[in-house]
Design a protein around this nucleic acid. Sequence first.
DNA 1: TATTGTTATACTCTATAACTATA
DNA 2: TATAGTTATAGAGTATAACAATA
Lengths: 139, 139
Amino acid sequence: MWVASAVGQAFEAVAARFALSPAQARALLLLADGLPMSTIADRLRCDASNVTGIADRLTARGLVTREPSLRDRRVKLLVLTGEGQRLRKELDHALSEASPVVAGLDPAERATLQRLLDKIVTNVAASHCPSQASGDRRR
Amino acid sequence: MWVASAVGQAFEAVAARFALSPAQARALLLLADGLPMSTIADRLRCDASNVTGIADRLTARGLVTREPSLRDRRVKLLVLTGEGQRLRKELDHALSEASPVVAGLDPAERATLQRLLDKIVTNVAASHCPSQASGDRRR
DNA sequence: TATTGTTATACTCTATAACTATA
DNA sequence: TATAGTTATAGAGTATAACAATA
C-alpha cells in the first residue's frame, strides 16, 4: 500500500508539471482515440456528470474538442486536438521516465516484479469482469 | 501503475464502507498515538490548513479530540477517542482483508513480491530522506 | 422507457494568504 | 522573527437529482 501510494504521488507530481490535475491527466491518457464521454466516465470510474467539467477544462486549454457521433446523436466524442496529442505524448513519456519504484532494482528483479504485476492485473481484471477479459466493450 | 491504481481504489472502497473519505481514513490510520496536527500534515503531504478541516470532521463524528501539548502551547495533539480507536482497528483489519492484489498469488510469489516491495520502500525512503532511512515506515 | 450529456447543488480535499497565539 | 493552528477564499473532483434531446 505504501508503494502504491508512492506511485500515485509520482503520477500526481508529473501531471502537475503539465498543470494537469490527476483526473485531467488520466482522461488525456485515455484519449489515444476519440471516446464517448460516457466511456470516459466508465474508465475513470466516476459519474458521467463529472466528465462534463473535466472536458470543459481540457477544452478551455485547447487540448480536446467535442465531436458529434455519427451513429448516435446523443453521444459526443472527446477528441484530442493537435496540441492535445502533443501534450499527451509528452505526459506519457514523462510518466515512463519518472519511475522511482524500479530505480533501485536490478534487471532480474524488475523482470520478476513485472511478471508478478502482470499476473495481478490478469487476476484482478478477470475477477472484476469475467466476460470481457479479452477487452472489448461495445454498446 | 495499473496495480497501484487498483490498490488505491480498494483503499477508497474500504474507507467508504466506514463513511470515511480517503484523507480521513489516512489520518485515522496515522493516529495509533496522538500526533501534533503539523505532523499529520507532513505525513499526509498536504498543507497544514487542510488538517483543520479533516480534524473538524473526525471530531464531529466523535472519533478524535484536540488535546493541548504540555511542551508547547501552540501545538494541539489529535488523539483518538474510544470510538475512534475501535473504528481505526476495524478499518485496519478490513484493509488487510481486502487485498485483491495478492488474491491470485501463491505463497512463494507473495513472499517474492513482499521482498521486492520492501526493497522499493527502503530505496524510495532513502532517496527522499536519507537521514531517516532506518526509520518509521511501519503501519 | 431508457440513455447521453448537461445543469444545479452540495460536500470534501487542496493550496494560498492573512490572522492569532505562542515561541 | 518564526512556528502552530485557524480562518477565508478559490478551484477541482466527487455524487445525486432533475432535465432536454435522442434512441
